[in-house]
Design a protein around this nucleic acid. Sequence first.
RNA 1: GUGAGCGUAGCUCAGUUGGUUAGAGUCCCGGAUUGUGAUUCCGGUUGUCGUGGGUUCGAGUCCCAUCGCUCACCCCA
Length: 423
Amino acid sequence: MSKAIQAVRGMNDVLPDSIGHWQHVERIARDLLHAYGYREIRFPLLEKTELYARSIGELTDIVEKEMYTFEDRNGDSLTLRPEGTAGCVRAGIEHGLLHNQQQRLWYLGPMFRHERPQKGRYRQFHQFGVEALGIPGPDVDAELVLLSARWWRALNLDGLTLEINSLGTPSVRAAYRENLVAYFESRRGELDEDSLRRLHRNPMRVLDSKNPAMQDVVSGAPSLADALDNESRAHFDQLLELLAGANVSFVVNPRLVRGLDYYTRTVFEWTTDRLGAQSTVCAGGRYDGLVEQLGGRPTPAAGFAIGLERLIELLAIQGAASQPHQPELFVAVAQPTAQAAALQLAERMRDAGWRVTCHCGGSSLKSQLKQADRSGARLALLLGEDELARGQVQVKDLRGAGEQWSVAAGELDGFLRERLEQR
RNA sequence: GUGAGCGUAGCUCAGUUGGUUAGAGUCCCGGAUUGUGAUUCCGGUUGUCGUGGGUUCGAGUCCCAUCGCUCACCCCA
C-alpha cells in the first residue's frame, strides 16, 4: 500500500459510479450549443507560455503563481492551459477563422492551475467555454446570457443568481483605477491590512472588502459606473434592456471585476450560495481587445466559461438523477460446458440491439445471479446443458417476483422485445 | 504561500485513565438449495492502525517530525 502511487494533488479521478453526471451534463450542453448555432473547436492543452502571459495579464495571480510552466526538450517555455479563451483565439487567428468573419464556438476540456485545492477548486478542473467572435453589439452579449440561462433550465438547476457589470474600455478603466488609488491613498489610515496589500496590485478588489469597518471608506469611493464613456454606457444599457425584455432577472453589481485582464465592457457571473467558498459557477464577458493583442485584426468578442466540477457538485446537491448505463440482459451459465454457447448468445443479443453483460470466469450459478441482480439488468438469460439439449433459454425476471420462462431459442428475440419494450 | 481539522480492513466507522492475539457493519467468496438473485441463517478472506522517530515493562491510544486528505484565507471556473 505504501508503495502505491497516488494521483497528483488536486487532480481527481472520475469513477464509473459518478460518470453519469458528467455524461448527462455533456449531452445536454452539446444539444443546447447546437441549438444556438455554436460549433465545437478543439485546441491543445499545451501552449507557449507567452500566449497566456500576453492575454491573461503578467500581473494576475494566474500568470504570476498558478501556471504549470516548464521547458520542453528544445528549451521552449510551455504552459498547461489555465483557461480556454487564449488558446481558442490563438487557433482562430492561426487558421483565419476570425478574418472578417463571425464565429460562434465552444469547447470542453481540462484546465490546470496550481492553487491549493479546496471544495469546488482543483488543480485540474474542467470548463465548458463558449465564445462569440466578430460580433460587436450588446445583442450577442444578451445571447450568451440567454444561452447560459437556458443551460440551467435544461439541467433543472435553480438557485443561481446572475450578476452583471460593465468595465468600460481599457482607457476608462485605467483612468478610473488611478482615481480610485488616489482616493484610497487620501484615506490610507482607514484601510485594513488586506486592502493595503490590494491597493496597488488590484485596487478594484478593495471595494470587495468584507470588513464592516471599511464600509465607510468603500461607500465614499468613486464609482466605475459614473466613469463609463458614453458608448460603453449605451452598450450596457441596451444589454440590460435586452435581458429585461427576455425576462432574465439580474443584479447589477458595480463591484463585479474579473480576474483576467482582457475583459472590456460587459462582465457577468452566475453565482450560488450552496458551494461553500467557491460561489461562481459560470463567468464571462466581453474582450474586444484580445484578438488584436494576440496578433489578429481588431475583432470584437465575448464569451463565458462554466466550471464543470462546480456544476456537477450543484446537481449532486440537488439530487438530480443520473442514469447509469446498466445492461438490459445478463447471461449466466449453469455449467462451464455452456460457456461458448453463452458468449454466442450474448453476441446475438447485441446484434439485436440490447445491452448485454455476459458472465465470464466460472463461478457458481448462485453467485452469477447475484451479479446479475447487482448489474441492474432487467432480465437474466440462463444457459446450461439442459437448455442446450432442448434448444431453449431460461429467461428470468430480476426486477419482479422472479418469474421465469422457458423460451425456444428461435422465439427469444420476439419474447425479449415484448418483455423489455413495455415501458 | 498562510491557518485549522482529520488519517484504524476495498467502503462507513468503534476502539475506555496506555494493558493479552485490533473489532463491528458493509462488500467479496463458499454453504444451507449436487441449476436460481434481491430477503433469512451459517462459515470464511480482508490491516505496515498514513510514515519515521521518541517516552514506557508495554503505544492504535501520549510526545515530536513528516507525508496525505479536507475545509478556509488569498484568488478563481
